[in-house]
Design a protein around this nucleic acid. Structure first.
Length: 601
RNA sequence: GGGGUGGUAGUUAAGUUGGUUAUAACGCCGGCCUGUCACGCCGGAGGCCGCGGGUUCAAGUCCCGUCCACCCCGCCA
């Protein structure tokens, strides 16, 4: 019957688009029943589609049959309305865009009825994520979530338009690829045709996009799904989407310029916001020194101060903890909270910060408050510190009366993580962040290698095809830890939204990098032989970058979680509450794959 | 792998030093209502207190274990 209806009647308007200019028109709307207000002789419903809601009114004087049928309408019934747009006269609802009009229902078609939904389909709904994810198709009916996905769609369209007009070629790469060691843990896919052999799900199209450059496509992009089997977070899902880009015959400036253009285009198209270019830049080393992290949020200006040298000259300043840290070649850094912000930080709250930093693995959080005359009050440090050291520290910090100072000492990695985390935490807690800003920042000159304490070797910080800065190439054999890479990240308001590098295309440089990683050419041949082979045939200089689409969407929509911009997200344990994936499989399926489970689980 | 928070009606929450029949709001069902838009009024139904064990005369409440969800650290080239 409803099929017959649609051969006769077509939708003429979306509900949310109706305005007073439509008054007098016959319209056909299709959508879902929101709230229902039944007054007997007048029945009102809110008809919702993806554009918004319009009020529909039923009455015996308008159409008796429709009015009688409207009595049965309930939440989330899927219906069509044929009616006339009329003015609401005095009864305007200023809260909704369609509030000046309503539709007098001449005809009501019920396509399908609905069970009572498990939660209210509304932006005011207080239902938790667990129940919403179980019925995600209903959750996705909520206007706020629909707006997120409409915006995400605009983001993708803007991206394709920009690259299309800039001479980029959209190309696809395989998801099922060869397992490559290092980096993120891979999801594995067993090969039925090759028992005992496995594909990996691509953690990124990295190597394939480089091969596109070897092939001569010159400028490539793709909006592509990537897979990483690592622990999840608010801003991390096991499958996520990247805007993947690679270009030939370029240097860093070409990447920066082209990607700033992309960002500006996206912000203009999606938000109608003009983004100022060029973006600010910060060397990795400076970012770590001043902010303790490689993705600083520069919307507020608290900075860390390195006191290692100052306290060295004062022999630890009389503080046993400091001198102990210095003896073990640790560093000492401090975060100063100026008095005007510190006043809103009560003693109890400052105590709580100790618990906060312990989450980062800190033993504790030494702190002091600057009293009159620069003395340190309410601090265990005040008794032991020498007046000379105290004065020197105060000067290094430019500390004034009423300021709070937090100290951290020990291994550089820990000190920076703790104070960087504390800086961000206090920035939020003390309301120092200007939320109206879009603060873009290039972080440049990342180190080539991290030292792995576990394996006692250097490992690639980005990936092993990242080009070193040419002046640092000699250091590859003498001091790998000091080699800087031609790698860059794009940071927005403290979120890493993109990362990339120029790649190695010269055999001798690649060999030196392998050597620094402690890998023989043989090792690498086994793992990346196809890439090395490809590079024997005239590889162009090239480089690229990849953006996290989900994070971009999250920032563009103001969503609190990646889960609000991914249609069917997974829980923190990687399960799908709607489908129950992952599940166990039958013995027959395992048999076919030549897999035996190691029980019991 | 580690730390933390939570789990009570369809939903969101309250539940005191362990003590009668486990509350509320919204939602739902029935009735009434011609201007509501958080409609209103009258009536009603609805519970494996996450699961398992223990302590006790008595457990939503205390103890142990376990599962699930969320947040953070490690991890994410």
């Amino acid at each position: 019957m409803s099929g017959q209806f649609l051969t006769e009647v077509k939708r003429t308007h979306y509900a949310g688009n109706l305005r007073s200019t439509d008054i007098g028109n016959e319209v056909v709307l299709m959508g879902w029943v929101g709230t229902r207000r039944d007054h007997g002789g007048r029945v009102f419903i809110d008809l919702r589609d993806r554009t918004g809601i319009a009020q529909v009114v039923f009455g015996p004087d308008i159409n008796g049959e429709a009015h009688a049928l409207a009595d049965q309408l309930r939440s989330e019934f899927c219906i069509a309305i044929v009616g006339r747009v009329i003015s609401r006269g005095e009864n305007i609802n200023a809260k909704i865009p369609t509030g000046e009009i309503e539709v007098e229902a001449q005809r009501l078609q019920v396509f399908s009825r609905s069970d009572t939904p498990p939660f209210e389909i509304s932006d005011d709904s207080e239902a938790g994520e667990t129940v919403r994810f179980k019925h995600r198709y209903l959750d996705l009916r909520r206007p706020a979530l629909q707006q997120n996905f409409l915006r995400r769609s605009k983001l993708c369209k803007a991206t394709r338009d920009y690259f299309g007009e800039s001479g980029f070629v959209e190309l696809e790469t395989p998801f099922m690829v060869k397992y490559t060691p290092g980096g993120a843990r891979n999801f594995l896919v067993p090969s039925r045709l090759n028992p005992g052999h496995f594909y990996a799900l691509a953690e990124s199209p990295q190597i394939f996009k480089q091969l596109f450059m070897v092939a001569g496509f010159d400028r490539y992009y793709q909006i592509v799904r990537c897979f990483r089997d690592e622990d999840l977070r608010l801003d991390r899902q096991p499958e996520f989407t990247q805007i993947d880009v690679e270009m030939s015959f370029i240097a860093e400036e070409d990447v920066y310029h082209t990607m700033e253009g992309l960002i500006a285009h996206i912000w203009k198209e999606v938000l109608d916001v003009e983004i100022k270019r060029p973006f600010a830049r910060l060397k990795y080393e400076t970012a770590m020194a001043h902010y303790g992290v490689d993705k600083p949020d520069l919307r507020f200006d608290l900075q860390l101060c390195d006191l290692t040298e100052v306290l060295k000259t004062h022999g630890g300043g009389g503080v046993p903890l400091f001198s102990g840290a210095l003896e073990q070649k640790g560093i000492i850094k401090a975060l100063r909270i100026p008095a005007e912000h510190a006043t809103s930080l009560s003693r109890a709250e400052a105590d709580k910060l100790e618990e906060f930093v312990k989450g980062f693995g800190a033993r504790g959080l030494a702190r002091c408050k600057l009293g009159e005359n620069g003395d340190w009050v309410s601090s265990p440090l005040s008794k032991s510190v020498t007046p000379e050291a105290r004065a020197a520290v105060n000067q290094a910090l430019s500390a004034r009366t009423g300021d709070f100072v937090f100290f951290q000492f020990g291994r550089p990695k820990l000190v920076n993580a703790v104070l960087g985390g504390l800086r961000l935490h206090l920035g939020q807690k003390l309301n120092l962040i200007d939320k109206s800003q879009w603060n873009f920042l290039w972080v440049t000159e990342f180190p080539m290698f991290d030292y792995s304490e576990e394996n006692k070797t250097f490992v690639a910080a980005h990936h092993p095809f990242t080009a070193p800065r040419s002046e640092d190439v000699p250091l590859l054999s003498t001091d790998p830890g000091a080699v800087r890479a031609r790698a860059y990240d794009l940071v927005l308001n403290g979120n890493e939204i993109a990362g990339g590098s120029l790649r190695i295309y010269e055999r001798d440089v690649q060999a030196k990098v392998f050597a620094a990683l402690g890998l023989s050419e043989e090792d690498f041949r086994a793992k990346f032989g196809f890439l090395l082979d490809a590079f024997r045939y005239g590889p162009p200089p090239h480089g690229g970058i990849a953006f996290g689409v989900d994070r971009l969407a999250m920032l563009l929509t103001g969503a609190d979680s990646l889960r609000d911009v991914i249609a069917f997200p997974k829980t923190q344990k990687g399960t799908d509450l709607m489908t129950d994936a992952p599940t166990q499989v039958s013995d027959a399926q395992l048999e076919e794959l030549f897999i035996r489970l190691k029980g019991p689980i």
